[in-house]
């Protein structure tokens, strides 16, 4: 556990020193949101209807944008080699990296995302359920992003492939996330399904991603 924490702490330090991570993602997020009324027209009623879904889609895209780099730097500079020789199983390394990505990118995005709802006339009643669903769902998004990053770690233009591979897996999160964001009551079936998705990905993603990393190290 202490060893895992060392890795998470290193990634957090790196993210704060290098900057960019969350800031760029949030900037991208806001840009997507701003583009919507420009493309759809300023009809307030229409915008209010699509607001939760639009915020979710922008969240998915912003998380994906930063996914590619999760393992790439460590692969390129040989850190991943050394980590593979550590006493910590690669599965836990994946989990730690995914959590670091969540803390530095997805969580900040999920926290600020509903606040930008005012740009597209989000119903204030939706803010609280949207917040809860996004914070929960963002864990799933980071884990799956880590899987995509592991699958494409050594590919020069892996970014597009990550999107093609991972977006289909984001579909259930989008569907139940949006459903949970429209709720009149806070805890309801969609939120529970979202929780189930998070838990399942917690178990399955590290196994699959570690297998992919091993294939690249060989």
């Amino acid at each position: 556990m202490k060893l895992i924490w060392a890795l998470i702490r290193r990634d957090l330090t790196l993210a704060t020193r290098q900057g960019g991570g969350a800031g760029t993602a949030i900037g991208f997020f806001v840009t997507v949101i701003v583009l919507l009324p420009l493309g759809l027209g300023p009809d307030q009623a229409l915008l209010q209807r699509i607001a939760p879904g639009a915020l979710w889609i922008a969240l998915l895209l912003s998380v994906l944008l930063s996914a590619e780099r999760i393992f790439q730097a460590d692969y390129e500079d040989g850190s991943l080699d050394a980590m593979a020789l550590g006493v910590v199983p690669l599965e836990l390394v994946v989990l730690a990296k995914a959590m670091a990505h969540w803390l530095t990118t997805s969580l900040p995005l999920a926290v600020v995302a509903p606040l930008f709802g005012f740009l597209i006339n989000l119903d204030p009643q939706d803010i609280l359920p949207l917040w809860l669903a996004m914070i929960l769902g963002s864990i799933f998004l980071s884990l799956l992003a880590a899987l995509g990053a592991a699958i494409t770690v050594a590919l020069r233009r892996g970014g597009l492939l990550v999107s093609l591979l991972i977006l289909p897996f984001y579909v259930p999160c989008l569907i139940f996330g949006v459903a949970a964001s429209r709720a009149s009551e806070l805890v309801q079936p969609s939120l529970l399904i979202l929780t189930a998705l998070v838990l399942a990905s917690f178990v399955l993603v590290p196994v699959a991603a570690a297998a992919a990393l091993r294939a690249y190290l060989k």
Binding site: I151, A154, A208, A215
Partner: peptide, 23 residues
């Protein structure tokens, strides 16, 4: 796309397996 993107066929096979099983 995975098969196409990865040069080394042995490595491509390992990665493609993971993608097929996950999907």
């Amino acid at each position: 796309a995975v098969w196409q993107a990865i040069e080394d066929p042995h490595r491509a096979a390992l990665i493609a397996r993971i993608v097929a099983i996950a999907g």
